[in-house]
Write a protein that binds this DNA or RNA. Sequence first.
RNA 1: GGAUCAUUAGCUCAGAUGGUAGAGCAACUGACUCUUAAUCAGUGGGUCGAAGGUUCGAUUCCUUCAUGGUCUACCA
Length: 500
Amino acid sequence: MENLLTNDIVKQKYANYEYLKENKINPYPSDIKKDIMAEELRKKYKSLGQEEISEKQYWVAGRMVALRGHGKTAFGHIEDFSGKIQFYGRKDELGEEFFEIFRKVDLGDFIAVKGNVFRTKTGEITIRMKEFKLVSKSIQPMPEKFHGVKDVELRYRRRYVDLIANSEVKDIFIKRSLIIQKIREFMSNRDFLEVETPMMHTIAGGAAARPFTTHHNTLDMDLYLRIAPELYLKRLLVGGFEKVYEINRNFRNEGISIKHNPEFTMMEVYQAYADYNDMMDLTEDIFNHIAIEVCGSEEIEYQGEKLSFKKPFARLTMVESIEKHANIKLDESMEQEDIFEIAKSNGIGSAEKSMSRGELINLIFEEKVEEKLIQPVFIYKYPVEISPLSKNNEKEPRYVDRFEIFAYGREMGNAFSELNDPFEQEKRFLEQISKRSDGDEEAHRMDKDYVLALQYGMPNAGGLGLGIDRMIMLFTDSSSIRDVILFPTLRPNKEEENKS
RNA sequence: GGAUCAUUAGCUCAGAUGGUAGAGCAACUGACUCUUAAUCAGUGGGUCGAAGGUUCGAUUCCUUCAUGGUCUACCA
C-alpha cells in the first residue's frame, strides 16, 4: 500500500479515507441505491418555478466532479452516466458535524445525495442536500477539469481516466454501441440469423493475413486465433442455414496503424441463393440505414470531408476506376508483360516481373486509385489471382464476381459470390500453397475439411465482410481506430510495471 | 522495420545560445450563506522519460534506450 502513495495529493486523500473510517463512515459500502438519474431528474423538473421546491426527495448518486465552498454553504456537481446534477448544502440545515465529515470528501469521490429539488437564482435545477452517503472513496488525483486529459498515451492506457475527464469519449462509445445494435436490428429484420463460430482455429483461413498462435495444453496442440470466420460460416450454408451473420473479433498479427488494430471487429454475412450483386445492395442499405439512424442524415462529415451515403453509390470495375482516377487505360487484349510495363512506366517500383496479370492490375489500383476513392464507391470485377475464395465470372473467368466498398480512401468491406465448386476450390488452395512455399506468409492455407464440406454441396451464395471499427470511425468522425476501440493494443509500460 | 516529432508538478502547458525551473487548474491553510472554469489571501509540490558521454557545471548539447504520436513499409 505505502508504495502506492506516490504523491502529496494521494497521501492527502488517503488521510481523508483513514479519517472517515475512524469516524465509522464506511468508504466502500455495499448498500447504496439511487432513485433517479441526473438527466431524468432535470427533465422531470424542467418547468419548476424560481421559488418552488419539490415535495419529494430523491437520492442521486455519481462522481463528485466539482465543489464550490462558500463558508457556510456549498455547491457541487455530481456526474452520473446520464449527465451532471448540481447539489447545494447549507450548514444551518445540515449541522456542524455533517459539515466536518463532508470536508473529508474529495473531488472524484462517488457520493450519494438526498434532498428536495429546487431552482437556483441562476436557473439551474439543484438538489437541496438533506443527507449524503459516501459511495466510494477515490484517492487518485482527478485530471484537470477544464482541459481534460490530452496525453494520448494516458488516454489509451487508462481509458477510465479518459472517460472521467473527456465526456465526448463516452459519447463515441455510446454511439459505437448504438451502431452495432442498429446493424443487428437491421439484419434481424431481414431474417438473418446471428451465429457464433470458433475464434480458435486449427487452420487460420478465410483471409490473407498472419495469425496469432496459441497453445492448448490438454490437447497439446497449437491453435490460431482466427483471422476470419468465413470458412466456418460457409460450412453452415452446407449444413442448411441460408442467411447467417456474425459480428465478432478477428485477430491479425500485423502492423498497427491509424486504421489497424491487432484485434478488430468484423461482420460477415452469408446468404444462400444470392450473389455479389445482392451483397452490394445489402451493403448500400446498411450504410444508408446507419447514416440516417445514427447521424440523422444521408450526408455526414468525416475529417472535414462531406460524404454522401445516398443510394445508389457509384459502381466501377477495377479497370474502369484505374482509367478514371489514374488516367491509365487497360484493356482485355493486354497480357501480363504489357501491364507490367505500364506499371513500371507509371512509377510503381514495387511491380515485379514474377507477378501475375491480376496481381499487377490490383497493384496499380492500390497504388494509384484507392486513396482517391473519397465518396462511397463499389469497386468490382476483381482479378481471380487475388481472390481464392470467390467465384469466377461466367463470361470472363480471369475475373471473379467480387467487390470492395471504399470510402475516404479506405477499404470498408469486401464481398463476393462464394466459390462453391469443390474442385476449383481445391485448385485455388493449391495455388495459394505454392505461393506460401515461395515465401508469401500471408497466402491462404489449405483447408481440406472445407473442401470436403463443399463436396457435400453448398448452394450458390453471396458473402460480405464489413470492418465494423472503420465504419464506426466514419460515423463518429474519428481519425484513428484507437479512438473507437476502448482498450487498443499498446505495449506495456515497463516503468509502471516495475512500480507495482 | 525505416523516418520524424514528443516526453518538464496529479492534469493542461510555458521556459533557458549550458549556471539544477514557472503559470493555470487540482491539493493544503484561512475568509466568504445562490455558486457554476466561483472569488480573495497565503502554503506546499519536480531525479525536467531512463542510462551513459562532453563540460567546472547538463533538464538544455551528443549517443543509446523506453514509451507514445504522425508518416512510411507490412497489412488483398
